[in-house]
Design a protein around this nucleic acid. Structure first.
Lengths: 204, 204
DNA sequence: TTATATACATACACGAATGTTTGTAAATTG
DNA sequence: CAATTTACAAACATTCGTGTATGTATATAA
């Protein structure tokens, strides 16, 4: 095979990631073979092993392509103290749901992650980081809720820690259910759903 | 090997299921070998292939052992129309959470299911039934919420369909988060969490 | 322009897990 | 008590995917 130009190499790398994303989503991670990825991208396994070390590295690249915008979004939430913590938390939750609803690539990657798989110890590292970041997320939500509590936005019967559990479960459950088989328009529904939930936080 | 008595055979079958449950939960379904299951049960693969057709059949048996009580619980909800639909729905949600919190076997099986895996097409049939039953669940919840709406328990701005989405997401998210890495006492927390959420449904 | 690194294709070696076949001693049946 | 079935163990064949080694023509650097 002739050597290809630098831009062409980047193109095949992107095609490999696209193919892997689609196959992971369709067949599952463990069930997709490196050969399947190569064929879907129009190359052979040689190209795969040139660009990536193994399947786990492809998986990380596929995920990182999509999950980074979501993490930046969560970080902006923590950086924005605001004078209406509960309101901005509600807005953030709504915006994240709408972000997912609009970005097809993120939906695909979330479908892969939600559907789950077990690829042996190679993937343990990445999945551990994933779980770590989810813990961070809950921590940030809890700190925002503490700010809300000090400003009297939460009734005294609702502790920030318990409220954080509820918020995480609700938003996460919404994402999970919609990504896996939601047949409704999440972007439309998001403000409505978040309003119903947060009204329960404000007055028990 | 000497032939073992009928009761002993049933015992080894149960030991195989116990071993499979623990290994599926610990290592993941795809990463556990039939040989690992056999060794953990103190037998060889011969015994495995005697009692089960393949890994998928073991998986089904492991799951059915735990998920059946939960399904009966959901069915009793639909059979109980009641004169306080929203209240009984809240109670049901709370009881399901407490059921999960108490039954270790169900927690293990739910951990397997939530963690997810892809075992190829062999498992497609069972997972399809699983998804089907979840749809049924949402349907039943929606019908209960319609009964609540006709009795004026829901504000007119909250449609039963949308409320069903929210309820499912909340309870499912709570189960998911707690089973995967919840370090709090769900049985204690359940009444509290459900009250906060359902108060949001009652008054937006 | 020549030398070298690149971007793959091709072929091979290897292990791991599965499914199957055969063997067998004891339990069960009639 | 004989005949047969049972509940496994043990050995075998086979498939499948991975990783790696090698080949090679060309883009790029000097």
């Amino acid at each position: 095979m002739a050597r290809r130009t630098n831009e062409q190499a980047e193109a095949t790398r992107a095609q490999l990631l696209d193919a892997a994303e689609a196959l992971f989503c369709d067949k599952g991670v463990a069930s997709t073979t490196l050969d399947m990825i190569a064929r879907a991208a129009g190359v052979t396994r040689g190209a795969v092993y040139w660009h990536f070390k193994n399947k786990a590295e492809i998986f990380e690249a596929v995920c990182d392509r999509a999950t980074s915008p979501m993490e930046t979004m969560l970080n902006t939430l923590a950086a924005e103290p605001g004078e209406d913590p509960l309101g901005s938390l509600e807005r953030q939750a709504c915006e994240i749901l709408q972000l997912i609803a609009r970005d097809a690539r993120m939906r695909a990657v979330l479908e892969i992650l939600f559907r789950g798989f077990d690829g042996g110890p190679e993937f343990a590292e990445y999945l551990a980081r994933e779980e770590e970041s989810r813990r961070d997320c809950r921590c940030q939500i809890e700190s925002v809720l503490e700010a809300a509590a000090t400003r009297g936005q939460l009734p005294p019967s609702v502790s920030p820690a318990k409220a954080a559990i509820a918020v995480t479960a609700f938003v996460g459950g919404l994402m999970h259910d919609w990504v896996l088989d939601g047949d409704y328009d999440l972007a439309d529904m998001a403000p409505y759903l978040t309003r119903v939930f947060f009204s329960g936080l404000r007055n028990t």
